[in-house]
Design a protein around this nucleic acid. Structure first.
Lengths: 202, 202
DNA sequence: GTCGAAACTTGACACCGTCAAGTTAAAAAT
DNA sequence: ATTTTTAACTTGACGGTGTCAAGTTTCGAC
């Protein structure tokens, strides 16, 4: 006999996050409503509000998980530490980044989209984790500058911002479906790498 | 005596577009509701639906105007045709592009955001005008490749997509308020230019 | 065993986009 | 000039949204 709807769900918070993640994964942020979410998990409309201040807080929690997943993936790339040249490492990173955006478009949109950052407001912990994530990129850029894969005529921060803008822009074009076809993605990603890395290291 | 609310507004369509444009300009797409818009113009909730099939159609019309304004601005840059070097011309374009995004963030978001392109569906005429706008960029990139300002190891289309992704990414970071402070914008824009243009032309 | 706190529910409010049916005015046809 | 058609506009309604307030149920600590 399965438990027949006890008054206290017991595991509501994680259940909400799981369900919300699934809904967002196929349907995007627009497809997620607090009411339908609650309904799907089997609780009343307002039950989620005892675990999340509001919809924004729930979205931030999910975005955090997204950042964690992304970081995990990136770190795997870095930890390989094989014979790969710096240029190859950089290329691998870019490809991994774009692949993440391609595989999890809705999550990426949530993580870096304006739903949280402009319309809503990022949770302190989300701000922290996203900042750490960017810091990782700055570090890589600095390393690439030292090894002359990236130009060093601007400081690491600026170069990181500029180059990350290129990555992010490509991801966004892909996700929003503007000017970029999915099938051309890898080729364009390589073009981006070629564009921003020093040609003599190519 | 001013006209006291005739049954037929007479100029509803343009009035709607004007009002909607103003609402979006300060408040973004999220701030625009068909009901408030109608109310502000002084007609009933559903009156706008006689001039626009739905909200999406209205947004597309406004986005079109945005593209026209952007094109006008870009063409002004191009028509100067003074002694400027190719590199300088390119820089000027990038700066103008970013300035447009900075001055009209909400309009930019509408023009290139997923509200229309993913969640909604772009009107045929919007598709056409946005395509033409990108075509202009491809032409510039081609020219820059011939003059060795941009690398020519990938075809013009790919290079255009990649470089425009960089611009677009920067614009988006700015608009969505991620990782980029408004005051650093020009510096980052210049870094983007330095990053994607060939160093020997610098 | 009682009590307080936490988890959860129902009801309500103010919004939203838009469809259907009705009303009014202007334009076209006679 | 009168009728008819058509377009512009209105009111009413439906189903959806986020979330607040107040009430109910259950659990954990004393």
């Amino acid at each position: 006999m399965t438990d027949t709807k006890p008054y206290h769900h017991g595991e509501l918070r994680p259940a909400l996050i799981d369900a919300a993640n699934a809904i967002i994964r196929d349907g995007g942020i627009e497809g997620l409503s607090m009411r339908r979410l609650a309904d799907q998990v089997g609780v009343s409309r307002t039950a989620p509000y005892h675990h999340f201040k509001d919809k924004n807080a729930l979205l931030c929690a999910i975005a955090e998980i997204g950042f964690e997943a992304q970081d995990r993936m990136i770190r795997e790339i870095l930890d390989v530490e094989d014979d790969a040249s710096s240029q190859a490492l950089f290329t691998r990173w870019v490809r991994a980044y774009i692949r993440f955006a391609n595989d999890n478009p809705q999550t990426y949109d949530l993580m870096y989209g304006k739903e949280i950052w402009k319309r809503g407001s990022p949770t302190p912990s989300l701000q922290q984790i996203s900042k750490a994530s960017f810091r990782l990129w700055v570090d890589l850029v600095e390393r690439m500058q030292r090894q002359r894969v990236l130009p060093a005529d601007h400081c690491a921060l600026r170069t990181a911002q500029a180059s990350w803008a290129a990555l992010h822009g490509l991801a966004r074009l892909l996700i929003d479906g503007i000017y970029v076809e999915r099938q051309d993605l890898e080729e364009i990603a390589d073009t981006v790498v070629a564009l921003i890395t020093r040609s003599d290291a190519n």
